[in-house]
Every structure is written in C-alpha cells, then in structure tokens.
Write a protein that binds this DNA or RNA. Structure first.
Length: 346
DNA sequence: AACCCGGGGCC
DNA sequence: GGCCCAGGGTT
C-alpha cells in the first residue's frame, strides 16, 4: 500500500472536526493559517472563531481599526502576524476586489504568507497540487524515511518539499496535506509517540532503527537574553492612569504598555530618583512596589524580569485613561494579566 | 544563513 | 529548563 493511501485511510478514521476544514472559502482558510503559524490548534481555535465572528468577510477586516485587530489578537503572540493580516486584508479588499489569489505563486506575494501558508491555502481552497511542509511534515517524513538532515537549513527544506511532492496524489492534494499534518499532530508526536498503534510501524525507518526520539534533527538553538522592565502605573486622584504604544522595532510592536524603565541589571532601581529625573514636575503622593520578586516572562528568545510600581499622584494626569478603558486595548499578556489581577475594582 | 518575533503546553 | 507548535520577515 502506498504511503498516501495508508496515510489518508488513517486520517479519515482519526481526523478532528475543525471549523476551517469545513469550508473552501479562501478568506477563512487564510485566516486560520495565519493564526495557526507556530501555534497549536487548541490555542488558535478560539481566536479563529472570534475573528470570523467579528470580521465575517475580508472587507470587515480591512475596514477595522488596527487597534481593534491588535486587541483581538491579544495573547496569541507573534504580533507581526496581526499587522500583516490587516495589511493583506486591505490589499485583497481594496486592490483585488475582495478576491484572494487562486494559486500559490500569487498567494506568496501577500504579506505574512510564506511557502507553507501559500501551499496550504492553494491546496485546501483551490486543490492546487503542492505539498505543505510544516513542523509536522518534517517530523513525519524524517522518521518514516529515516532522514537525518538538519531541518533548520534551506537545503533540507527543499529535500523535504521534493519528497513530499513525490508522495502527494495529484487527484487529492488537499486531503493528503490535511492528513500528513494531522498525523504529525496526533500520532507521530514530537515526544513519546505511541508507535505500537502506528500504521507505518513496519516500514518506519526511525522505528526500526530506534531513532524515533532523535528525529527530526534540528541543530539551531536560540539563545535567550535577559531584560529588566520596571513598569510605572501612575494613578491619579480620578483613578486614571497613563499608557503608551510600543512603536519601535522590538517585541510587542503596536501593543500598549505602561511607561517603562528598562535597565541592564536585576538590581532594584532607585525609583524616587528615576521619577524625579524623568518627571520633575510630578507631585507624588505614594509609591508602591507591587511585586518584590520580579515576574519572569519567557519569550522564545528573551527572558523578561518585570516589576510593576503603582505611583499615586497628587494631581490629575494628562492624556490619561480609566482602568475600564484599558480593557478595550491590546496589551502584552503579562501586562494584561497584571491589570486584571491588580487594577480591577481598584 | 542567522537572527528576530509570543505564548502556552508538555516533559 | 528545554522543546515544540499548521512560519514569516529582516538583515
């Protein structure tokens, strides 16, 4: 039995029912693929439902305020996806009359759409015969065919694309692509897969040579750098506070935050001296350190040490927002959680 | 080619 | 603590 036949047979017996699998609408497919980039289905699913509910068509998304898009994306991470999502929605809506490109080559030109996503949309929505190569596909093929090339290199990616292209049936590319990713997600899992019930047990090179746990090979390792954030939560007599938008090329671009002091060491800052220096005209009533132990917030390549300070002021703040208004704004999740746990019902 | 960009779940 | 997740963009 051929690889694809056995794979799709497994898929038809084991597939999850997911909303983006029940449609061929390129808008919904595209939306799901952007949301699912480097994101587990369980984490992305509620965001997919929320976006489709809030923006039923590409025109609704194109006409939305960016702040609203970022707020809806809050907590999902990799926020450039949301910015590119919005930009592409505008392009499709206003330049393409709301019609998505119908082939992978043209889809590749859209912001936020790379090789994987272009292949996914083209195959799922238009039945183009082009294989998807994502983390699941790397793992399934590396194990089944015993490939120990470093999957972080472009050359290896090309090898896997060629292999997948040789396996994909010309009459059912969408089914094959769905099947191989679902197989990687449910059966051929990264850690401790249950190979005893795997339909490929006999022909799987990794299983036969006891290399399942060591495949695929991924050499590049990310180094993490430490950063130290002190967030200043000003609170005036009216219960208002100040926030600012992150606009630099850095983490959390376009999201909001409290005024920030970033330092290079983990030592406790001299908060009074800093405030006097930064805000010489500010009349301070009371300063409160909310967490003596910094909150550790880990990103893929940064380890953030975060302290929150409440600065009660004698006089009203300029350009201030009520705590209630903060609920409608997109914050990094660590700040959003702090607001919900410490500033609500103040 | 190397690096940057989140948050969460699992071991 | 490390690894991975329906990857893509920038340098």
């Amino acid at each position: 039995m051929h690889f694809s036949n056995k794979l799709t047979a497994w898929y038809l017996q084991n597939r999850r029912s997911l909303p983006w699998r029940e449609t061929k609408d390129p808008y919904a497919i595209w939306l799901s693929e952007i949301i699912l980039q480097q994101t587990r289905v369980a984490q992305g699913l509620p965001y997919f439902e929320a976006f489709l509910h809030e923006f039923p068509t590409v025109f609704d998304l194109a006409n939305a305020e960016e702040d609203k898009v970022m707020h809806l994306w809050q907590g999902l991470g990799y926020y450039s996806r949301a910015r590119n999502l919005h930009a592409t929605a505008k392009m499709v809506a206003f330049d393409y009359n709301g019609i998505f490109p119908n082939n992978s080559k043209e889809l590749l030109k859209l912001k936020g759409v790379g090789e994987y996503t272009a292949a996914a949309i083209a195959s799922f929505s238009y039945n183009e015969v082009i294989p998807v190569v994502d983390g699941n596909v790397f793992r399934v093929l590396a194990r089944r065919f015993g490939i120990n090339s470093d999957i972080s290199t472009l050359t290896t990616k090309r090898e896997f694309q060629a292999l997948a292209a040789s396996l994909i049936p010309k009459d059912s590319p969408a089914l094959f692509n769905q099947a191989i990713m679902e197989f990687g997600a449910l059966q051929c899992t990264p850690q401790s897969p249950d190979c005893t019930i795997c339909p490929f047990q006999l022909e799987c090179i990794a299983y036969q040579t006891n290399e399942v746990s060591s495949l695929p090979v991924k050499l590049s390792k990310t180094k993490v750098r430490d950063r130290h954030f002190d967030y200043l939560i000003f609170l005036d007599p009216n219960g208002n506070t100040q926030i600012q938008q992150r606009t630099k090329k850095d983490i959390w671009q376009q999201l909001y935050e409290f005024p920030l002091i970033e330092s290079t060491t983990t030592e406790l800052i001299d908060i009074k001296q800093q405030l006097t220096s930064l805000f010489p005209n500010l009349a301070i009533k009371q300063i409160e350190l909310c967490n003596t132990d910094p909150i550790i917030h880990k990103l893929s390549h940064q380890k953030l040490h975060i302290r929150f300070w409440k600065i009660h002021t004698e006089t009203a703040l300029n350009n201030s927002s009520s705590i209630e208004e903060l609920q409608k704004i997109g914050f990094p999740i660590v700040i959003h959680n702090f607001i919900n746990n410490n500033l609500i019902d103040l």
